[in-house]
Design a binder for these strands. Structure first.
Lengths: 186, 186
DNA sequence: TCATAGACCGACTAATCAGTCTATTTAAAA
DNA sequence: TTTTAAATAGACTGATTAGTCGGTCTATGA
């Protein structure tokens, strides 16, 4: 990936997370990145393509981050915990990505078909399926189990952002995980 | 509330839920409502004020709907169930309001201070507080308990919209409620 | 009857913005 | 060295859009 392309994605992400993508003109992105207007459209033919590229870039990074944390010998609960914690930590450490994702996933740019394709979702679905087969998880659709976990991660991150004093409180985070775990476990 | 004002809110809601508010010009709202452009700005000095008015109008309606369902002699779990079910049913029956809310709550128009003021949130917080004092709910912030319930309602509604065959399946909905209940109960 | 205020109209404007176009530079291939 | 394609620039445009403005209509009440 050329560095101008990368620079544009990062600058746009910052501006998007501050002002939302509708209030962020492409010209402003180019200016802030210190490149010409034309070059933005050279790399991204439309603003929508820039936004989609950003989505994939973020999903890829979060996937690699979380996948690097899980280990083979772990129990099911340990795996879920690892995934949950990795997702929470990652979002706390990358607030711009988190803001962007919230906006994106509730915008007309997003569709659940787009989401379903990603390896990150695939991996989570496999884990959900495993838990159901072992009779550990509640007996509902694994996609639903995944969506429940995702929304609880989101709620957790929002809460920790608003209450920073808890951000390093391991015991508190464990309690938050138990909430999520109790929701899905049988 | 004058009927033009009401008409404008409803027309805008329909268009917003179809196209999002950034892709819905004020002129289009007026045209579709069969009134002049000027009258829109007579009732709502800015587009943002129209959007905020819509938010309050929806929150009020959902509040009156849910509050009408709870009854005094109910146990805590029954009350939570009633509230949960009312919220789910209401959102399923009012998909435009649901779509609008999703957009709004993840847009720059929204702030959690705006939300916190509403009677609907106040009522839910009281219930959460009650549950904590009776030692029935987990020992975390009542605001967090409320947010958890809200996000699980949202996830449930999204899932039922994508899987309409479950919409009238009472047994399935009860299972979905148990997920939410297990999350918050001790 | 007349005055007044709010409801209502729709043409208009000032600004904005996504995307285009022409031209120049750079770098790699031939 | 020459050719070619990609990278870069930035002025420009066509379309769009929130909001304005000057005015008319209607209803109420004095």
């Amino acid at each position: 990936m050329s560095d101008k392309r990368f620079l544009l994605i990062n600058t746009a992400k910052k501006l998007f997370s501050e002002n939302g993508f509708y209030a962020t003109p492409t010209a402003r992105i180019a200016k802030e990145a210190g490149v010409s207007n034309g070059i933005l459209f050279h790399y991204f033919p439309t603003k929508a393509e820039l936004i989609h590229a950003m989505y994939y870039e973020i999903k890829d990074r979060i996937f690699h981050y979380t996948v690097s944390q899980i280990y083979q010998e772990a129990t099911l609960k340990e795996s879920v915990y690892t995934l949950w914690l990795a997702a929470v930590e990652w979002n706390l450490e990358n607030p711009e990505d988190f803001d962007f994702m919230l906006q994106f996933e509730n915008s007309p740019y997003f569709s659940s078909e787009i989401e379903a394709k990603h390896k990150y979702v695939q991996m989570s679905l496999e884990l959900a399926e495993q838990g159901r087969q072992k009779n550990v998880f509640k007996d509902v659709n694994s996609l639903l189990l995944f969506q429940i976990m995702s929304s609880l991660v989101e709620t957790t991150v929002k809460f920790l952002k608003n209450n920073p004093s808890f951000q390093n409180d391991v015991e508190f985070k464990n309690r938050l995980f138990e909430i999520a775990w109790d929701a899905i476990k049988k």
